[in-house]
């Protein structure tokens, strides 16, 4: 059946079709390490992509270290100059450890439920 179809298709081709097929025909090109070369390029790209984020974070951290340290020392100096009562009132206004932990747990549960809903 398949060979009959092929024969019909062959018969429908005109002389120019056959001529063009002969002209366009080319020998298969041997791989000769081509695929290995491309795969190596892809693996290198993947590795670079995986390393980019940690390296960028490290560089960013190193660059940010000095100014952040400077900011902290300024903040400490400002705190020292504030009146004692003001600092005590501010610390009293901060949420307790229990509140922070409960809030964190609620947030984690919400994120988990959202991701489960998405799945």
């Amino acid at each position: 059946m398949a060979s009959k179809i092929v024969n019909m298709v062959e018969r429908m081709k005109d002389g120019q079709d056959r001529l063009l097929e002969a002209m366009f025909a080319s020998k298969p090109i041997a791989d000769d390490g081509f695929s290995a070369l491309v795969v190596r390029r892809i693996r290198r790209k993947l590795l670079l992509r995986r390393l980019t984020l940690p390296i960028a974070a490290l560089i960013g951290g190193l660059l940010a270290f000095k100014p952040v340290g400077g900011l902290l020392s300024i903040a400490l100096r400002v705190l020292e100059q504030l009146p004692g009562e003001f600092v005590a009132a501010t610390v009293a206004g901060l949420p307790t450890l229990q509140t922070v932990v409960t809030g964190g747990l609620i947030l984690a549960a919400a994120v988990l439920s959202l991701s489960m809903l998405e799945d």
């Binding site: 090109i29 791989d31 695929s35 290995a36 795969v39």
Partner: peptide, 19 residues
């Protein structure tokens, strides 16, 4: 992200693509 499987796809079709 199986690079070996992609390598096989390249081996199969590189001749057509290069031609």
């Amino acid at each position: 992200q199986d690079t070996a499987a992609f390598g096989e796809l390249i081996r199969r079709h590189q001749s057509h693509v290069r031609n």
